[in-house]
Design a protein around this nucleic acid. Structure first.
Lengths: 240, 240
DNA sequence: GATGTTGAATAATACTATCATTTAATCGTG
DNA sequence: CACGATTAAATGATAGTATTATTCAACATC
């Protein structure tokens, strides 16, 4: 081996394995030398990979004890990588529901903040993404990407540093969320009109209206999710 | 050097410097060999430290280009370390306000979820933390710690995996937030009674009441913060 | 003159080997 | 059986070398 971005690949593999549950929290990974053999690489690369996983809260390591998986509550699930692994390997309706509840907390607040702040450039960006969504509706653009971009644009327009940072979380999770909700046959969950309501409220500085419109969109998504969860009971693991 | 957990110290130092703004986003850090000399250690340690900072989104590195600071929007500010550095070195009323708005999004939702879920063990934990707060009020316990523990307990009682993960963020940030709001002379911002209202609503399964009580507490905190921001204009940088 | 190609310099990436330190587990004693 | 000393296993740290991607500039080509 020596494929340049090798450390990243090892992080990806081991991180994925851990999140998938190959090693239970509290359990030990093989020792560094053994991991090096398993991944056909040197101990140095393994050490650097383990350090990255440590930074994400997935593992810890002490002399003699070895490298062990941390309890789940220490995992930094808001880290884009960890979140992606989690959604890829442990996708359930329950998790999706938890995520929608978080969005209910964040997005209406962000929309309201954007309406108050009136950052013209940022609002123009939202309009542009709305335009993309219309194009996508007629097949001239990617529907998933433009939908995500619209939601991200609102977070940016809020001017709240934490909301901006949430973009990564929302971005990663929406790729799964939207794919799921859209996959319900015959139902186009998030219509362009619904999104437009949010934009218009922000544009005219109507904080409450923006929050309400964002809330409505998510309430509807939750309703659909619950309906579907009831129909195909405990049917997880799609995507990718 | 050779102080055993050296890598962590180097991460702390370099991470702190970056967040403080010693190197502007886009700018380059010294080359690995130079960093090793500066921190009086080996290149290996520097490499492992840089990898950890990479995992937190603070830096990137490519052959020939060197190690460079990523634009701020790529920083994983929800990472406990990054958040702590940010609050330690860039503490402003604006940031504090942004954080309170996030809490407004999260905590009422978590309180409502806890009221619906009715996890008796988790609710007992909230009661215990409330009890600690009363003790603290009479000087028999640490006020900051018990206040934080109370809020964290609610997040756990929500049963929402993302809210639980938020504990780290809230925990880190509250250590600064509460210290600030409490430092306003003569004003005890978060009274035990206010917290008790939240607990009682959760306990009796009143989702809306719990959300409202949590919301009220935060609204009051915001009001106080704004009032203080007006009085001692642009006066940041306390704590630690 | 604009554009594309080649090649040398450079700085990071990857690997190997070795020593130091910490600490869990074991072994001997009292 | 308790408990301190010993041992050994695993990570932590260091030094040095080989490899490779990237940049930048010189050069050729259109």
């Amino acid at each position: 081996m020596a494929s340049q971005y090798l450390t990243g690949e090892v992080v990806e593999r081991i991180g994925g394995q851990i999140v998938r549950g190959d090693v239970a929290p509290g359990g030990s990974l093989p020792i560094e030398a053994e991991l090096a053999k398993q991944h056909d690489t040197s101990r140095t690369v393994i050490r650097e990979a383990v350090k990255m996983l440590t930074a994400k809260g997935l593992v810890g390591s002490r002399p003699r004890r070895g490298t062990y998986v941390e309890p789940e509550h220490k995992w930094n699930i808001l880290d884009p990588d960890v979140l992606r692994w989690t959604l890829q390997r442990r996708f359930t309706f329950e998790l999706m529901r938890d995520f929608l509840v978080v969005r209910e907390g964040i997005e209406p607040k962000a929309a309201a903040a954007a309406a108050i702040r009136q950052d013209r450039a940022a609002i123009a960006e939202i309009a542009a993404r709305l335009h993309d969504m219309r194009e996508a509706d007629e097949g001239r653009m990617d529907s998933l990407e433009s939908d995500i971009a619209f939601h991200i644009a609102i977070l940016h327009a809020s001017g709240n540093r934490f909301f901006v940072q949430f973009s990564h979380v929302i971005d990663t999770a929406l790729r799964f969320s939207i794919r799921l909700t859209n996959s319900v046959k015959g139902v186009r969950m998030a219509s362009v009109a619904d999104h437009e309501r949010i934009y218009l409220a922000i544009e005219r500085g109507d904080a409450e209206g923006a929050a309400q419109a964002a809330q409505d969109l998510l309430t509807e998504a939750l309703r659909l999710l619950d309906a579907r969860a009831l129909s195909d009971r405990e049917a997880p693991v799609p995507v990718d």
